[in-house]
């Protein structure tokens, strides 16, 4: 399969702020590609360049073989873009918004209903409600329906799950997965939630306008090179300081109910265990663990 999106050495600066510092990536057709990183990393800038709403200062980008600068009109027909901020018409109803986007692209809701059915059925009973009066989760589903109604080949979704609770996020990812498998739509999606990275075929870890790494989630966690240990005890607050005092500790970070500790060369977990016991901790549990995407991100960003 060919690459439906390509980005090559793209740079973008806003005044003094260098938003993108020469990023490159290729997205294969039918893939879910994730841009994973914090606010301000450059994710939205890249989406806006791919959506032909912003010109790069340098570098090139293509969608379906079309150049974002030269062929922007054609590109706009083949992408569906869902910006991070809700950008439908608040005072049109659910149905009117959908009709508006369909007619803008010279099509009808009926013609492409099969694409949105799975998503739209959740909000259909509110079709006469104004978009501005919808809850967050329903707005998100309407926005996705509107981005799909002209049957795009590529979906560009900028942080669709930010601020959304875990159950709605799970449902949303299930919808994306069906769009990919049942309709072959390519999806480029950004998220600040590291756990969602595992749901993508490939991801780019983004920080400060750079890609730290591009690969499958499994390859990224698999290539984690540090010695990683999970540590817990009865007194978690004090344990954090005690672990940081240990000269063998490279990094110490909270991870849910435990701390993840990386150990410097020349030290080992027995010494770690000894140190923690020496500090007077009870019910100490030290286990060697595999890295998560979040561990990998933290290791790559320091």
């Amino acid at each position: 399969m060919g690459n439906i999106v390509t980005v090559s050495e793209v740079c973008k600066r806003y005044g003094k702020v260098q938003a993108l510092r020469g990023v490159s990536m290729e997205v294969a057709e039918g893939e879910i590609f994730g841009l994973i990183g914090p606010d301000g990393a450059g994710k939205t800038t890249l989406f806006r360049i791919l959506a032909t709403l912003l010109l790069a200062d340098s570098g090139t980008a293509t969608v379906d073989g079309l150049d974002v600068r030269r062929d922007y009109r054609k590109i706009r027909r083949c992408i569906g873009y869902m910006p991070g901020r809700f950008s439908l018409y608040q005072d049109l109803t659910v149905r009117e918004n959908l009709e508006f986007f369909a007619t803008t692209f010279n099509t009808t809701i009926e013609r492409n209903y099969h694409l949105i059915e799975d998503i739209y059925r959740h909000i259909e009973r509110f079709k006469h409600r104004r978009a501005g009066k919808l809850s967050g989760g329903m707005k998100q589903k309407l926005a996705l329906s509107c981005a799909l109604i002209h049957a795009p080949r590529v979906l560009l979704l900028d942080e669709p799950t930010t601020g959304v609770d875990p159950v709605s996020r799970k449902e949303f990812w299930e919808m994306l997965f069906r769009l990919k498998t049942q309709h072959g739509i390519t999806i480029v999606v950004s998220t600040p939630y590291m756990d969602e990275a595992m749901k993508c075929d490939r991801i780019a870890l983004v920080q400060n306008g750079h890609f730290l790494k591009i690969d499958t989630p499994a390859a990224i966690t698999g290539s984690y090179a540090k010695s990683l240990w999970s540590v817990r005890s009865e007194q978690m607050h004090r344990l954090l300081d005690d672990l940081r005092q240990w000269p063998g500790a490279d990094t110490v970070f909270s991870f849910g109910e435990t701390y993840h500790v990386t150990i410097k060369n020349g030290y080992d977990s027995e010494q770690l265990q000894h140190h923690v016991a020496h500090c007077g901790h009870q019910q100490v549990l030290v286990q060697h663990i595999e890295a998560s995407i979040e561990d990998a991100f933290m290791a790559l960003s320091d």
Partner: peptide, 16 residues
């Protein structure tokens, strides 16, 4: 919301 994983943890240490 929205910050990188290291900053998010430093933030929680302030809470602790």
């Amino acid at each position: 919301g929205g910050v990188d994983p290291i900053t998010r943890r430093q933030f929680w240490e302030l809470i602790y």
